[in-house]
Design a protein around this nucleic acid. Structure first.
Length: 423
RNA sequence: GGAGAGAUGGCCGAGCGGCUGAAGGCGACGGUUUGCUAAACCGUUGUACGGGGUAAACCCGUACCGAGGGUUCGAAUCCCUCUCUCUCCGCCA
C-alpha cells in the first residue's frame, strides 16, 4: 500500500509512476479524500478533548458533592456532534484505504518502460542449450512414455491441470526440492520454514493478492485461502512486527505446494506440467532495511541462478518492464530456463523487490538500535525455483534419443543411485 | 465434539467505574559510585494518527489494556457479540 504522506509530499512523482504502469493520475482524488479525512479527524478530536475535560470537571464537582448538571447538559450536546464527525472521518478513512489498497506499486527508476512483455530487457544469457542430434520430445511425452507421468489418472481424481508422478519422477520431484532447500539453507543462509498453506484474508491483503486478485486463488468453504506461493506465509511472518535492524536481513525459504486457479489462463499451456493448479515451489523471502534491499535483490537472484547452474541448465535473466511487473513489485527479474521441445526460454523464477509496499500493508517495521523512530522494512521474494517447471526442464534437457533421462550430476546423491531414468 | 479457565506495556504481573497510558518486578538504555568486573543507587524506557515546528529535537491533542459494539458525564474496569490461547475428557495423523 502507498503511504498517503508520500503522496501528499510527492504527488507528481506518484502520478508519474502510475503513468509508467499504464494508469492515470490518482493523486488529486486521493488528496481530496485525505484532506477531508484530516479535517473531520481534527474536528472530532477537538470535541473529544473538550468532553474529556468536562468529564473530569464533573468528577471533581461530584466528589465534592456539588451539582454538575449544567456541564452535563453541555457535554450531552457535544456527544452527538462528536459521533457524527467521528463517523464521517472513519468513512473517509475507509474510502482512502480501499482506494490505496487497489493501486499497484510504483516501478523503480531503473525499471525499463513498456506496456507488456515485449518491452522486457534481457540482462544475460548463461549456459548453452544442449545440442541434441535428434528431435527433442516434450516433457509430457517423455514422462508418459516412461509410464511415470499420468495426466489421465490425475484427471480422474482432480480434473484438468493436475498430474500424477510415479516412481523415479516422483522421486525426482522430491530430489529437486531437497536439493534446492539444501543449497539455500547451507550455502546462502536462508532459514528453512514449514508454513501453513491455508491462510486468512489478512495475509493475502498483506502481500497484495487481495483485494484485487481473489479470482486467481482457491478458497475453502471455511474461508481459508490456499496459498498461490509461499511468499504469502513467509512474508506475513513479520506482519505487525517492529524488527531490530541489527537482525536484518531475515532470509527464509520454504518448499510448499502452491495452488492457483489459473482463472485468466484458459487455453494457455494446456498440455503438460507447465501450468498446473497445484505445484511445488521453493520460495525465497528476505526482509531487509530500506538500504539493504537493492543489494539483497541481486543476491537473491544469484541464489536462484545457482540452482540452474548446478543443474547444468541454460537460462537467461530478464528485467521486467514497468507494464509487465506484478502488483506488489517495484522491480522484478525473471529467470527463464531453456526448454528444447519448445525451442524457447520459459519462466522458472521471478525475483521481486517490493520495497516498502507490502510492509506498509502488513505494518512491518524496523528500528535502529537506540533510535525512536520506526520505518517500514523492505520485502523481497523470489522462486528458488519452481520445482514443477524445473522437473520439466530436466526431462527435456537431459533426454536421450531412446526417451530415457540422464540424472544431472547434482541430483545423483538425491536419487539414491539412479543415474538414468528409463521405462 | 463435551466441560472449564483466560487474553493488560519488551516480558512477568496488579488493577475491577473518575486522580490509570496504566502500580510493582524483570529486562533494556543513560548516569553516579568503582582499580576492573559485579553489586548498589538515580533517571529514562509503548505504538499510531492529527496539529504545531524549515527539518531533527521537541511541544499539544486523540486513540489504543485480544477485536467489534453497547451502557455512562466518565470504562482496562459493567453488558453483548466475535476471535484466539490454555486445561481436562473424547476422537485422531
Amino acid at each position: 500500500m502507498h503511504d498517503i504522506k508520500f503522496i501528499r509530499e510527492n504527488p507528481e512523482a506518484f502520478d508519474a509512476g502510475l503513468k509508467r504502469r499504464g494508469l492515470e493520475a490518482l493523486s488529486p482524488r486521493l488528496l481530496a479524500i485525505d484532506a477531508e479525512r484530516r479535517r473531520l479527524m481534527s474536528e472530532s478530536q477537538e470535541i473529544q478533548a473538550r468532553r474529556n475535560k468536562a468529564a473530569k470537571e464533573i468528577g471533581a464537582i461530584k466528589s465534592k458533592g456539588g451539582d454538575a448538571s449544567a456541564i452535563m447538559a453541555q457535554v450531552a450536546a457535544d456527544k452527538d456532534a462528536e459521533a457524527q464527525a467521528d463517523a464521517s472521518a472513519k468513512e473517509k478513512e475507509a474510502e482512502l484505504e480501499s482506494a490505496l489498497m487497489t493501486i499497484p506499486n510504483l516501478p523503480a527508476s531503473d525499471v525499463p518502460d513498456g506496456a507488456d512483455e515485449s518491452a522486457n530487457v534481457e540482462i544475460r544469457k548463461v549456459g548453452t542449450p544442449p545440442s541434441l542430434d535428434f528431435k527433442p520430445k516434450a516433457h509430457d511425452e517423455l514422462g508418459v512414455a516412461l509410464g511415470l507421468m499420468d495426466f489421465d489418472a490425475a484427471a480422474k481424481l482432480s480434473g484438468a491441470r493436475f498430474v500424477v508422478l510415479k516412481g523415479a519422477l516422483a522421486r525426482l520431484e522430491r530430489a529437486l526440492g531437497a536439493f534446492m532447500l539444501n543449497l539455500h539453507t547451507r550455502e546462502f543462509c536462508y532459514l528453512e520454514v514449514s508454513p501453513p498453506v491455508l491462510v486468512k484474508d489478512t495475509a493475502l491483503y498483506g502481500t497484495g493478492q487481495l483485494p484485487k486478485f481473489g479470482e486467481d486463488l482457491f478458497r475453502t468453504e471455511q474461508g481459508h485461502w490456499m496459498i498461490p506461493t509461499a511468499e504469502v506465509p513467509l512474508t506475513n511472518l513479520v506482519a505487525g512486527e517492529i524488527l531490530d535492524e541489527d537482525k536484518l536481513p531475515i532470509r527464509m525459504t520454504a518448499l510448499t505446494n502452491c495452488f492457483r486457479s489459473e482463472a485468466g489462463a484458459a487455453g494457455k499451456d494446456t498440455r503438460g506440467m507447465i501450468r498446473q493448479h497445484q505445484f511445488q515451489k521453493v520460495e525465497l523471502v528476505s526482509i531487509t532495511s530500506p538500504e539493504q534491499s537493492e543489494e539483497e535483490h541481486q543476491r537473491m537472484l544469484t541464489c536462484a541462478e545457482e540452482v540452474l547452474k548446478r543443474l547444468g541448465l541454460a537460462y537467461r535473466v530478464v528485467a521486467l518492464c514497468s507494464g509487465d511487473m506484478g502488483f506488489s513489485a517495484r522491480k522484478t527479474y525473471d529467470i527463464e530456463v531453456w526448454l528444447p521441445a519448445q525451442n524457447a526460454y520459459r519462466e522458472i523464477s521471478s525475483c521481486s523487490n517490493c520495497g516498502d509496499f507490502q510492509a506498509l500493508r502488513m505494518k512491518a517495521r524496523c528500528r535502529k538500535a537506540g533510535d525512536k523512530a520506526t520505518r517500514p522494512v523492505h520485502t523481497l521474494n523470489g522462486s528458488g525455483l519452481a520445482v514443477g517447471r524445473t522437473l520439466v526442464a530436466v526431462l527435456e534437457n537431459y533426454q536421450q534419443a531412446d526417451g530415457s533421462i540422464r540424472v544431472p550430476e547434482a541430483l545423483k546423491h538425491y536419487m539414491g543411485g539412479i543415474e538414468v531414468i528409463q521405462p
